[in-house]
C-alpha cells in the first residue's frame, strides 16, 4: 500500500468528495471503494460546511485538502494555511490553475508555491503535468510525492500520455507517484497501476456515474488488479505471434 510522507494508507484509491447526488451516496461510495484518502476543499461558509465536516470525519480515513480554484501563488498559500488549521493536517494537494478550459496546472507558480509551503512545514501533494523537468523541480522544492494528471480534470479521457507517465515512473523509482485527474473508467485506473504508479486520485468518474457506489467498487477492483499485475511483472508486447501451445509433439495429420 502507498506511503506518503511516512503515513501508510490502506488503499491505492484516493477519492474526491465532490459532485455526488447526495451525502449518503457519497458515504456509501467511500465504503464500497475502501478508499485510503478523501480529498476535500475550502469554500466560503454558507451554512453547509459544518455538516460536511462531520460527514468526512465519519469516513475515518486521512483527509487531503486541496487548493482547487486557486490561480496564483498567494491564493494557494493562503488557502493552504487555512486548510492546515481547519483540517489539522500538514498535507495539502497543491493545485494552481493556469488555463480555465483545460484546468492545466500553472507549473511555474506550482514550483514556487511548493517551495514556500514545504519551507513552512507543509507536506505537499502537487497536481502537476508529467513533464520530467517540472517534476524534478518539484522534488527540489521539497515535494516527496508527485501527482501528474492523466488527462484534464473531469474529462474522463484516461491516460493521455502513457509514455510520459512511464518515463516519469522510470526516472523517479523511489518517489510515490499518483495519477491525479482524467480517469473515466476502471480500465484507466488499472492502466495507471500497471505502469507502477502508487495510487490513483479520482472523483468525477465515480460521483457522476449512474451508480456511484457500484463505480466506486469497480474502481477499487481495477486498482487492485493493476497493482497485482504490476507486481507480477507483465510480459513485454511484441509484434510477432508466439504460440502459447507447444508445437513439439504435435501429431502429423497433414
Amino acid at each position: 500500500m502507498p506511503q506518503f510522507y511516512g503515513t501508510r494508507v490502506e488503499s491505492a484509491l484516493m477519492l474526491g468528495t465532490a459532485q455526488y447526488p447526495s451525502p449518503s451516496i457519497m458515504a456509501d461510495a467511500f465504503r464500497a471503494s475502501g478508499a485510503g484518502i478523501a480529498t476535500v476543499s475550502l469554500r466560503r461558509e454558507g451554512g453547509a460546511g459544518q455538516d460536511f465536516h462531520k460527514l468526512i470525519k465519519g469516513l475515518d480515513i486521512p483527509i487531503l485538502p486541496n487548493t482547487a480554484g486557486c490561480h496564483s501563488l498567494r491564493e494557494a498559500v493562503t488557502t493552504a494555511q487555512m486548510a492546515r488549521e481547519l483540517f489539522e493536517t500538514p498535507w495539502i494537494k497543491l493545485e494552481i490553475i493556469r488555463d480555465d478550459d483545460t484546468l492545466c496546472p500553472d507549473v511555474v507558480a506550482l514550483v514556487e508555491a511548493a517551495r514556500v509551503l514545504s519551507d513552512d512545514g507543509f507536506q505537499v501533494f502537487p497536481y502537476c503535468t508529467e513533464d520530467l523537468s517540472v517534476c524534478g523541480r518539484l522534488l527540489d522544492a521539497g515535494c516527496r510525492v508527485l501527482m501528474p494528471w492523466g488527462a484534464p480534470i473531469g474529462s474522463g479521457r484516461g491516460l493521455n500520455n502513457p509514455y510520459g507517465l512511464r518515463s516519469l515512473r522510470a526516472h523517479f523509482p523511489d518517489v510515490p507517484l499518483v495519477v491525479d485527474a482524467g480517469i473515466g473508467l476502471p480500465s484507466h485506473a488499472a492502466q495507471a497501476m500497471e505502469l507502477g504508479y502508487d495510487a490513483v486520485l479520482l472523483n468525477t468518474a465515480v460521483a457522476r456515474a449512474g451508480d456511484p457506489v457500484a463505480m466506486a467498487r469497480a474502481m477499487a477492483l481495477a486498482i487492485e488488479a493493476g497493482q497485482l499485475a504490476h507486481a507480477a511483472n507483465p510480459i513485454e508486447a511484441r509484434d510477432m505471434a508466439a504460440p502459447s501451445t507447444p508445437v513439439f509433439g504435435m501429431a502429423s495429420l497433414g
Partner: peptide, 30 residues
Amino acid sequence: NGEFLPAAIRPSATLKDGDALEVVAPMQGG
C-alpha cells in the same frame, strides 16, 4: 485582506472600515 488569520489571533484582530474578511469552511472537493 488576503492573508491567513489564525484562529488564535481572531479575538485581538481589530477590523477597520474597508477590510476584506474571508470566512471558509470544509467543502466537497476533488
